[in-house]
Nucleic acid binder design. Structure first.
Length: 302
DNA sequence: AAACATACCAACCGCCCTCCC
DNA sequence: TGGGAGGGCGGTTGGTATGTT
């Protein structure tokens, strides 16, 4: 007899998350860091199962998530990685740290699958690139991700949630439409921006992060717009949750658990990439010596 | 304007692996 | 050391939004 799903436990709430639940979860993770999910529902006062909390955090609330339209560049990466790795969404997501595996999976299923299907195979082959080129291109992407991560970790710790709730946008009662919080990233964005504004100028807990490797990395991400997206605001949700007390979470200039880190995981497992030869590729991709590689935008899939 | 079709995506399900007692 | 629980991940579902007839 199998284990009953955690969602079926008595008293466990299902369905879309409410703002209050998000606040509780973010507040809890901010204080204790991601991980030990079994304790989260109880300690955070959530009537959710641990799995639901982890998913909500990983797919929606964690810092550094970029939502919304995928760029052509991202599309290309996904298509190429999907061709290489298959439906290993978590592995693919590790190369696009700002995107969640769920997001990539959804995007593939709703957009890219059709797109690729409609591509004449000859066209695809004609535009195929050499492995060396592909590796170089991917390294550039990883460098971008590293920069974005550093940006995220550079912000100061913040601490107070208490003045955030009034910032919620009320439901659209006029239209009579049901208020679907889950899709209202704007609300969380507003909320967290307010939090960022009110955050105390306390000590920076950045010392756990060795950013020495960053210095020579090109900074394409410095153009990052200060939009009103959820992830933008969540970027303020800085380093406190990830300081040295969280021994699982650390990275140096030579390692590269950044991707896994952004998923609340501890390590990026090269073997998760499938074929054995990919671990070699992985090592190559994660080697900082490659950061000087030139990225050729002319490599076009379409 | 209503009914129906399609697209989208957050959340759930279930399997498998790992870890811990 | 073995079993149970937690966590990770890919597949699927269901609700909502949008487009079409």
């Amino acid at each position: 007899m199998g284990r009953p799903p955690c969602y079926d436990k008595v008293g466990v709430k299902k369905g879309p998350w409410t703002p209050e639940e998000d606040i509780k979860l973010v507040s809890y993770v901010k204080e204790h860091g991601p991980g030990n999910w079994r304790a989260v529902p109880t300690n955070a006062g959530l009537r959710r199962c641990s799995k639901s909390c982890r998913l909500r955090w990983a797919n929606y609330l964690r810092p550094g998530i970029k939502r919304g339209n995928f760029t052509v560049h991202e599309e290309k990466i996904i298509i190429q990685l999907q061709a290489l790795l298959g439906n290993k969404w978590a592995s693919i997501a590790s190369y696009l740290p700002e995107r969640t595996d769920n997001d990539i999976k959804n995007y593939w299923n709703t957009h890219l699958k059709k797109k690729v299907k409609n591509l004449p195979s000859s066209n695809f082959e004609a535009h195929s690139i050499t492995r060396g080129q592909w590796e170089m291109k991917l390294q550039t992407d990883i460098n971008m991700a590293k920069q974005a991560l550093h940006d995220a970790l550079s912000y100061q710790n913040t601490s107070n949630f208490t003045e955030l709730i009034p910032e919620f946008k009320p439901p659209d009662t006029k239209s009579g439409k049901e208020f679907t919080y889950a899709s209202s990233t704007e609300n969380i964005a507003r909320l967290l921006k307010q939090w960022a504004i009110n955050r105390p100028k306390s000590s920076i807990t950045q010392n756990s992060v060795d950013c020495s490797a960053r210095e020579s990395i090109p900074s394409p991400c410095t153009e990052r717009k200060s939009g009103n997206t959820l992830s933008e605001s969540l970027f303020w949700f800085g380093s406190a949750s990830f300081d040295s007390s969280n021994s699982e979470i650390e990275f140096s200039g030579t390692g590269s658990p950044e991707a896994g880190f952004l998923h609340g995981e501890s390590k990026l497992d090269p073997t998760a990439l499938g074929p054995t030869h990919l671990s070699t590729l992985e090592n190559l991709l994660l080697d900082d010596q490659w950061k000087e590689c030139v990225f050729d935008e002319s490599l076009d899939l379409f």
